[in-house]
């Protein structure tokens, strides 16, 4: 019996340790996000559009916009159909896949 209690106690310590480890990893998930192609390219937008793409002064926000609104603007800037001061110069560098993925990225950020 004594031995059984020890095993139970021992098991719960192990369980707690695992829970703690998983919890610590989940904290990291909030703090850090590994750089991949679209993450790096989206982070480039933050220089002007501000942290988290929330907008900066007269520079509009990106986060939480409808994906279709972002793609419409970027394709418009790229073709020149949508007038811009600087965005046309940036959008021309992007290919169609990049425009779609960037739009998806920013639309998925919480508003």
């Amino acid at each position: 019996m004594k031995r059984n209690i020890f095993i139970k106690w021992n098991a719960s310590i192990y369980f707690l340790t695992i829970c703690t480890a998983v919890f610590l990893l989940s904290i990291n998930a909030v703090m850090a996000a590994a750089p991949n192609k679209i993450k790096i390219m989206a982070d480039a937008c933050l220089t002007c559009h501000g942290p988290n793409g929330a907008g900066s002064g007269k520079i509009p926000e990106l986060k939480g916009l409808e994906k279709s609104d972002i793609t419409e603007s970027l394709f418009g800037f790229k073709s020149g159909d949508e007038k811009s001061t600087i965005m046309g110069r940036y959008a021309k560098a992007l290919n169609d896949d990049e425009i779609n993925l960037l739009a998806e990225y920013f639309s998925a950020l919480d508003k």
Binding site: L46, T47, C48, H49, G50, S56, G57, K58, I59, T85
Partner: peptide
């Protein structure tokens, strides 16, 4: 004028970033 306003937005954005 629009570019002047964007210049201010850019400054705020880049310094926060």
């Amino acid at each position: 004028l629009k570019e002047a306003r964007f210049a201010s937005g850019w400054y705020k954005g880049i310094t926060m970033d």
